[in-house]
Design a protein around this nucleic acid. Structure first.
Lengths: 223, 223
DNA sequence: GCAAAAGTGTTCAATGTACACCCATGC
DNA sequence: GCATGGGTGTACATTGAACACTTTTGC
């Protein structure tokens, strides 16, 4: 070891996990069962193991706490104010994640992990522990930024989707409406969608399904 | 303390510091005086003190090692691969910095700090220690991104500058040429420059000086 | 008067925005 | 046949890109 261990900060990961539920943008929060801030809501997260990559730590914590896996995850920012945590010096590497709840449903039901984890609509959040409000806001800003400049929005959708499903996701996250002709034009000229079959069994004109040509997150590199 | 200190990673800050020298983009490197990688070049950086903010640690290390201060600094990314440093688990919070060397000149000369610090042209870098090549490349990407979408380019200029000085800085960093009519039009329509006086004593048509209306870094928030 | 860099406008292409009607299905 | 959401094109404004000549100064 390089210097006196007692002078070392602790390192945690925290996650701002977004999903869409019933047409609303939601973020995952945990009710804290221990001090400090016992009973308050906080972002999911925990300590990084000594031999573990940062994003592996984030995925492990999220799975342990909620049973959720197979998510889109990227690093957000590192918060290291000396007094952000009353337990001592705790530096947290915040991450940003998106999940499609439909794909996870069995998972969530099959485990008991989610007892103190709950989705909250972002326009109606409780008070958050530590500096988690700031971290959440940073995550929300990143989310909206990503919707302008990347393919990550598709991680909120299934493998195949209709144009109006894409549009709804954008409208929910960016909190504004789009003209559907212009929206379709813009999305299609990006050239990232592959035409799939026409969806059947709907009580209106059957829509075309699309899928992604390229992996999620590939179009513009995170900066 | 929260858990066994021996299982704690160490936390460092590293910096990718850019400047322009003689029309070329340069990055600051330190020759390592101790193992591991003794004799190799590395990004400036060091351990974070227990009661110190991350960006304060970055500024302190940079000042200790080079005598440089008053720089533009922002957090870049946190690199935490368990095997990135042979000394053990070392998580580094990388930062990105820009300095105007003209403003620093007295400083650099007045101190002895710079003995093993040296500016290197970015198209002619030596082999770097640890994963610093990756960190450098991430910093360069961020630098170019910032030139498209923010006012940070002005941190490479003095308080007053001519349009062609701005253009040169952009051309050096982005490594391409611009048409001066289009360039001036684009910069001026951003509305961030204030007209200053006309520069005198040049052996050609005297240019107008400009200054920044708003603080550096304000136009677009870092994401 | 000449060398050096400064300053300045128009045309064209591409992109973004506003806007409305018909279509295919289930019931 | 009607309710539901799906699909599509044109006109206009804005933005970005190409392009060349005149101006002001020091020497």
């Amino acid at each position: 070891m390089v210097y006196d261990d007692s002078a070392k900060p602790s390192v945690t990961v925290d996650m701002v996990v977004f999903t869409i539920i019933e047409g609303k943008l939601n973020v995952l929060l945990m009710k804290r069962g221990v001090e400090p801030s016992k009973g308050k809501w906080a972002l999911p997260g925990g300590f990084v193991n000594i031999d573990e990559k940062l994003d592996d730590a984030a995925k492990r914590e999220l799975f342990q706490e909620t049973g959720v896996k197979d998510i889109y995850l990227e690093q957000l920012y590192t918060f290291g104010d000396p007094h952000r945590d009353s337990r001592g010096r705790v530096i947290t590497v915040a991450h940003f994640a998106l999940i499609n709840l439909e794909k996870q449903k069995q998972e969530l039901k099959a485990t008991n992990h989610s007892v103190d984890a709950k989705w909250h609509q972002i326009d109606n959040l409780p008070e958050l522990a530590f500096d988690h409000k700031k971290i959440f806001e940073y995550g929300l800003k990143r989310l909206r930024w990503k919707f302008e400049y990347s393919t990550v929005p598709y991680s909120l959708l299934g493998d195949k989707f209709t144009m109006s499903q894409i549009q709804k996701v954008y409208e929910i996250v960016l909190n504004k409406k789009f003209d559907k002709r212009n929206f379709a034009k813009k999305i299609l000229t990006l050239g990232i969608l592959k035409k799939e079959e026409i969806k059947k069994d709907v009580s209106h004109r059957p829509p075309r399904l699309y899928s992604l040509k390229i992996p999620i997150g590939e179009i513009i590199e995170t900066i």
